[in-house]
Write a protein that binds this DNA or RNA. Sequence first.
DNA 1: CGCGCGATTGATTCGGCTCAATAACTGTGG
DNA 2: CCACAGTTATTGAGCCGAATCAATCGCGCG
Lengths: 235, 235
Amino acid sequence: MKKKPEMPHCETCGSRDKSVFCGIASGEIKDIDASKGCNFYNKGQVIFHEGNRISGIYCINKGKIKIFQIGSEGKEQIIRFAKEGDIIGYRALLSEEPLSASAATLEESTLCFIPKSQIFKILQDNPNFNFKMLKLLSHELGEAARVITDLAQKPVRERLAESLLLLKDTFELDDDKNIQIKLSREELANIIGTATESVIRLLSEFKKDKLIDVDGRNIKLLNIPGLTRTANIFD
Amino acid sequence: MKKKPEMPHCETCGSRDKSVFCGIASGEIKDIDASKGCNFYNKGQVIFHEGNRISGIYCINKGKIKIFQIGSEGKEQIIRFAKEGDIIGYRALLSEEPLSASAATLEESTLCFIPKSQIFKILQDNPNFNFKMLKLLSHELGEAARVITDLAQKPVRERLAESLLLLKDTFELDDDKNIQIKLSREELANIIGTATESVIRLLSEFKKDKLIDVDGRNIKLLNIPGLTRTANIFD
DNA sequence: CGCGCGATTGATTCGGCTCAATAACTGTGG
DNA sequence: CCACAGTTATTGAGCCGAATCAATCGCGCG
């Protein structure tokens, strides 16, 4: 399943300046380059598996990823998304715990793997990178708290509207206002913790209300203020 | 509301060796001691407020704390708990974002406040402390992910059983198997995202099933394996 | 003793899930 | 290029978990 693409180089990686590696000196970048591996993944491939140990982090050179857990009834719960320039697997690496979630590609993707030893070396030598990681983790923790409150308190309708806005912020809209990610109805349901049928019904209501337009897996955001109101967001 | 207690000293703080400060050299401990402040809080007092900025972290010398958000309908959502030896406020401090949650005491508590400058100094000088923070944050993030999946997928009955077990793990049982924390029915509801009436009904069912015993706010865990089963936990 | 908050119980309602049937779509091989 | 098989999406019906609403109770405290 894995093909060997042109090995991307960190030095020329287009997403480096948007990533946690943006402040790293060129010498260290060369070290990373020398120690890393790189792989191509087809759509839907699993990158790592909840419960396993991990021996490094993955840096997304290209592509889109979902991070998810499997609940006690075997149902997928999407925890977060990652895209070009993002890293995944760092939580388990840093806590030295088993992976709390799995990761799979949502489209064809190229990922670099940076081994643990290299990451820890940079953490030690580079206060700037270290601090970036602290910032990243604490930011994520804040996001998680907001998700918790929403899941606990908001009805499905509001959560779906909010998710669409979240997807917009993560993957952006194209010139035609389409969210730049194609998810199945089931995946949408697995973000907000509901049944696929509920997502389908609500999407068609949103469409009727002219908040969005739907064409297959393509979702166009027609009325963002309206969606924000529907999501019951006021800050 | 705030009284001035005996100022506790980090050097003799009983919970230091259980905390993130356990590996810190005695010279640095003296620095913390010199820069910190300390306050007594009555039960129910708010320590900090969601949305505000924070200029340091609080270290719990004594007492029990809830960290919570207010949802869009004004309802409290308890995100996590903290107790002796734990620190709070570090998420917002490290991410340099506004506080994502508020904190309030669940009983009389004594908290030390360590200013930002001191924390950042230790972070820079002490790789060990730095690494402890990375570990703490990434551990928390893993916990948060599990909470998200549970909230999204488990029915209220399972969530309540799971919460009781979580409270046991956090605050431990006394010799009589009572959970060492007294929460109102409403607070229990605000952990699991349900209505107080549902908590009440389920607690009395659990009691009928001999899983627990209830006496006012005192909850005794009679059958932990049974509760685990009720919570649908198998790992 | 009475006020007021928290706890309890019952009745009712409703959001959202499940189940079932059908339709649309995707990729595959002939 | 079309037929077929296997997904994925849609729609409808019915049910159920849990929320809401409404009393009542209990008790701690001034």
